[in-house]
């Protein structure tokens, strides 16, 4: 019995730590949704794009950190292009058409990634520890723990940026009411570029971490799509929601797979997160931390 419990805790912890990976993507997602009201289906494609660009640049024989530095302007360029080519033409479109446009964007990004860098699996190594250590009787993966630390640093950085800088305040104002923000001089284009750029950086960090764990490969896109159930569970507009949602999704998919999945043939991670999210939504449609929106007639 004790053995079972210990095993349960190990599975739970590894699930939670995987969940942090989902949270990372979900955070970028929430940022974009809040500021530009776009449900960005291309988030996973952006992760893959960032990671592949990084690997591609380091392929010229550059240091990994320096390559990451060089990837940042690429993500800025992407944000700029998205703004002038898509966002500014879509002001006040229906949410569904925005969503469609981001599906198109994800195709463009995936195609570009493969066209430029090929579709092979690239290894990405930037010195995260890979050993395990033991707390009590439970094994904990050092890699996963460092990912949690990276996530914490990232979130802290975002909180400081949003709460304590002028630009951050403008972003929050746009998220509250974009027309009112414009009416007092906030430039929407600028805010959107900044938000998509920040989301791009989050994607880069996510891509690096995931690349180190699984290798940089096209399948990352599908895994990153799990950010969808995460944000749906957490509420579309809440960063704490994205984190808690990621943890719940990560833990539940691991537990289901380990304790029930084998009876169903395994590999249930592909759909369990979605079902968990939907079941949760049926109980609380606005998600864990989402604001209840009042529909206008």
């Amino acid at each position: 019995m004790f053995e079972d419990f210990q095993f349960f805790v190990e599975v739970l912890i590894s699930g939670l730590l995987t969940g942090i990976l989902y949270s990372l993507v979900a955070i970028g997602f929430v940022l974009i949704y809040k500021a530009s009201n776009v449900f960005n289906f291309a988030q996973g494609a952006m992760v893959l794009f960032a990671a592949t660009t990084l690997v591609g640049i380091s392929g010229f024989g550059l240091n990994i950190w320096f390559s990451a530095l060089l990837t940042i302007p690429v993500m800025a360029l992407l944000a700029y292009l998205v703004e002038i080519l898509i966002l500014r033409r879509m002001v006040n479109s229906t949410p569904i058409s925005m969503f469609m446009a981001t599906i198109g964007l994800s195709f463009v990004l995936l195609g570009l990634t493969q066209l430029i860098w090929g579709s092979g699996v690239h290894l990405l190594e930037f010195g995260l520890p890979s050993g395990q250590f033991i707390v009590g009787d439970v094994f904990i993966n050092q890699f996963d723990l460092s990912v949690a630390a990276i996530c914490a640093i990232l979130v802290a950085g975002l909180v400081i940026f949003f709460q304590h800088t002028k630009v951050g305040l403008s972003l929050r104002a746009v998220a509250e009411d974009h027309q009112a923000a414009v009416s007092v001089g906030v430039s929407l284009s600028k805010v959107w570029v900044i938000v998509w750029f920040i989301a791009g950086i989050v994607c880069l960090v996510t891509g690096m971490v995931w690349g180190a764990k699984l290798g940089v490969q096209p399948a990352l896109n599908l895994i990153a799509l799990k950010a969808l159930p995460v944000i749906v569970l957490g509420g579309l507009t809440s960063i704490p929601g994205a984190i808690v949602g990621g943890l719940i999704i990560g833990a539940s998919e691991k537990l289901f797979e380990v304790f029930l999945g084998s009876a169903f043939g395994g590999a249930t991670e592909s759909w369990v997160p979605y079902v968990v999210a939907i079941l949760f939504l049926l109980v609380k449609p606005s998600g864990l931390f989402g604001s209840t929106q009042i529909g206008r007639i």
Binding site: L169, S170, A173, E176, V184, G185, V186
Partner: peptide
């Protein structure tokens, strides 16, 4: 901006 404080509401305009 309902979720922002009075100070912040005013600051958005002043900053921009």
């Amino acid at each position: 901006f309902l979720g922002l404080t009075v100070d912040e509401n005013l600051a958005v305009a002043a900053n921009n």
